[in-house]
Design a protein around this nucleic acid. Structure first.
Lengths: 228, 228
DNA sequence: ACGTGTTTGAAATGTACGTTTGAATTAAAT
DNA sequence: ATTTAATTCAAACGTACATTTCAAACACGT
């Protein structure tokens, strides 16, 4: 049994935990290398820079997750009849939970890292993400469009981003939320439970009825000042 | 006409923009004071520390917003028949948009600051928020409970936090989203438009049907490994 | 066993940060 | 007008950061 881990592996393991807990900017290479019990310089030796280390930490999960998602999307797209929104969203559950094979608590850590990526490093990680995996996510948009044909494209854009926010924020603050939930309702609040709670929430949200324009304008003349 | 602004005011104005754009940790006092065209030391002179400056920036909006929300909550609580979820959520629109009186783009900036507060400074701002305004938010929980009496308390807890995530994430990345939306669908994407789009989304999400336990356990034996 | 290429180690570099200091300046009060 | 308090200013302090350097230790094919 070789419990001897490579330096790179030790760095990645320490980095992902610290990044998930305190963010990318909030974590120093000194914290990472001291928790990994390796020399400070080895990060720059093995990964080049902190920025590239962040990408490497994310890639360890993305390289497993995205092909799995792509495969699921293709399966749904090949179906004869259009899929329901619930079917489309459920497709995320298995691939996400299988990230626990990459690392214990891999699912939670990856989703936290994803959340950090959208708020911490301005734009940089968003670009990295869209550039590498934009094709896959286009298939998701198509599937949701097929599931909700009555939804205008503009509305769908916003609701998918609302949903991304829901997931990402929930995971980024999942530690705190789990503590509160456990104290106040003593329920099981592992990552799987949260994901399964999210599904009906998101499903109903994305398929919400579109308010009529007349109902919108009813609340329109709200303020005399300030139109962008 | 006295267009001479006090040093404190200039600092607050510069700080809120920078905090909203690049986060609390991501903004240095040197950036703030140089944009405000004041001396570096004046932040510590007028506010004591960076941490207290962050609180002061938030308080400028919270002291306007929270009493307004409290008043609206009390109005709804005094109603004879229980209010619909839509009525409860709509109550946020006016008070939030009135923050534009505190400062141009005040609504957007405040919501961005709120989002940053939940991800940037670990726990500290969350405590500050709950400690000062927990009483007010309890009324919101009560109102939602009255609007959705079939929803268990534990489920409601999670869904309200999901919703907070939706709002906060959307606002934190509203600049980028607005750019994309404008380019791809050329729609009006001011802050009021986003808020009005959020209402039906959140309303449907919070009131989503609760999945049966049998349906949950159907997807339960997903992985052999790893239960938290 | 040797020599080569890879990896680690301790130390130093330069930059940026929040905060403090004490003198200079301005405003207010008597 | 003179004293007193409040504010601004330039400079410095100590700390922490990412990155670089270069010698030492190691791995390993020959």
């Amino acid at each position: 049994m070789s419990n001897k881990l490579s330096t790179q592996h030790k760095i990645l393991d320490a980095a992902q935990s610290l990044f998930a807990e305190t963010g990318y900017n909030g974590t120093s290479l000194r914290q990472i290398t001291s928790q990994a019990e390796v020399n400070l310089a080895s990060v720059n030796y093995h990964f080049g820079s902190k920025k590239e280390l962040i990408q490497a930490v994310l890639q360890r999960y993305l390289l497993v997750l995205m092909p799995r998602l792509d495969q699921e999307f293709n399966r749904l797209l090949a179906a004869q009849q259009p899929n329901s929104l619930n079917q489309v969203l459920s497709v995320f559950v298995r691939p996400l939970l299988e990230l626990n094979k990459v690392h214990p608590h891999g699912t939670r850590i990856f989703l936290q890292l994803l959340g950090r990526g959208y708020t911490d490093v301005q734009g940089h990680l968003r670009w990295f993400f869209n550039h590498h995996y934009g094709r896959v996510l286009d298939k998701l948009v198509l599937l949701v469009q097929q599931a909700c044909p009555e939804l205008p494209a503009g509305e769908l854009f916003w609701r998918l981003h609302f949903s991304l926010g829901t997931v990402v924020f929930t995971m980024a603050s999942s530690e705190a939320l789990a503590e509160i939930a456990e104290a106040d309702f003593n329920e099981n609040v592992d990552i799987e439970g949260v994901i399964l709670r999210l599904l009906p929430y998101l499903s109903a949200a994305i398929a919400a009825p579109i308010p009529l324009v007349s109902q919108l304008s009813q609340t329109a003349p709200l303020l005399a000042s300030e139109g962008r």
